[in-house]
């Protein structure tokens, strides 16, 4: 834990009174995957609130953890719909294979198992969510594979096995010129080419056109957490939407989906996985 990081987080959200406590705790939780004791003490001191009150808030919300969490989070749904379809069996299979109980972390600090009460996708239950990726109709046989995928990292997804991953063809929302670059393939599909600028650097950036894949290729290495300005390489208009990312608050980048009449929005912060697809009048 770095006291300067905590200091900065507090200063970002703190405006002279006791507001912003939840957002401060959320940011600390995102950064360290748990709330370290020292961090809580610092926050209490800076916000001039008592440690008791702070601890009550930190233990009240399930989103906060006071114990270090693993690199990957496996959430098994035990809501009513998943429960009647055998969610309990799947949870105990995860417990058996990982050797931990819900709420615990494996000794190598890789995987945290969590039992949740509903993930809002009851129709395709039993549901297991690994680092934001949904696995539907899970059976006990699939548990081993899911654990393996969690350990190897789900950012490199197998395209054929996951129906959520599909290619999109995008164009500039200003000049409607296609942004697809057939000269360079990423993930086996033509890439999306845009111009980016950050820290006085200006260069090209190629994104995977697979919705749900985060593979990129770039001229300059973009530091993680850096907010990047996106430009159309044809009309040079800045690609910036009025909405901001629900996950990190950075501005979103709008891209027109060709043939669909909708837009796909991606977060402009490097490393943030916030994105959304808005296809009007099209059944996804």
């Amino acid at each position: 834990m770095n006291p300067e990081h905590i200091q900065k987080i507090i200063e970002d959200h703190h405006n002279g009174n006791q507001t912003g406590l939840i957002s401060i705790l959320e940011e600390i939780q995102t950064k360290y995957s748990y709330l370290p004791e020292e961090a809580l003490k610092m926050v209490a001191q800076k916000l001039k609130c008592s440690l008791v009150d702070l601890y009550a808030v930190a233990t009240f919300y399930k989103a906060f953890s006071l114990k270090p969490r693993g690199k990957h989070l496996i959430s098994v749904c035990l809501g009513t719909a998943c429960h009647v379809r055998g969610g309990e069996r799947i949870a105990s299979e995860f417990q058996r294979q990982l050797g931990i109980k819900p709420g615990e972390t494996t000794s190598d600090n890789q995987i945290t198992l969590e039992a949740v009460n509903c993930l809002g996708a009851c129709a395709i239950g039993p549901i297991v969510v690994v680092d934001g990726h949904y696995f539907s109709n899970v059976t006990a046989q699939k548990v081993k594979e899911i654990i393996h995928k969690a350990r190897t990292g789900l950012d490199r997804v197998d395209i054929r096995s996951d129906e959520k991953i599909f290619p999109v063809e995008v164009s500039c929302p200003r000049c409607n010129h296609s942004l697809m670059d057939k000269n360079k393939y990423i993930d086996g599909y033509p890439s999306i080419r845009v111009t980016v600028s950050f820290n006085l650097k200006h260069g090209w950036l190629r994104l995977s056109c697979l919705y749900g894949s985060f593979s990129v290729d770039h001229e300059y290495e973009v530091p993680v957490d850096e907010i990047v300005n996106f430009f159309c390489p044809h009309c040079h208009a800045e690609l910036r939407s009025s909405s901001s990312c629900v996950e990190c608050g950075a501005p979103m980048v709008p891209l027109l989906v060709r043939g669909g009449g909708g837009t796909v929005q991606i977060c402009s912060r490097r490393g943030c996985k916030g994105h959304m697809l808005d296809l009007t009048g099209v059944n996804v």
Partner: peptide, 9 residues
């Protein structure tokens, strides 16, 4: 003093 308080839920 505020030494003790409620915890969890």
């Amino acid at each position: 003093a505020k030494a003790i308080g409620f915890r969890s839920r």
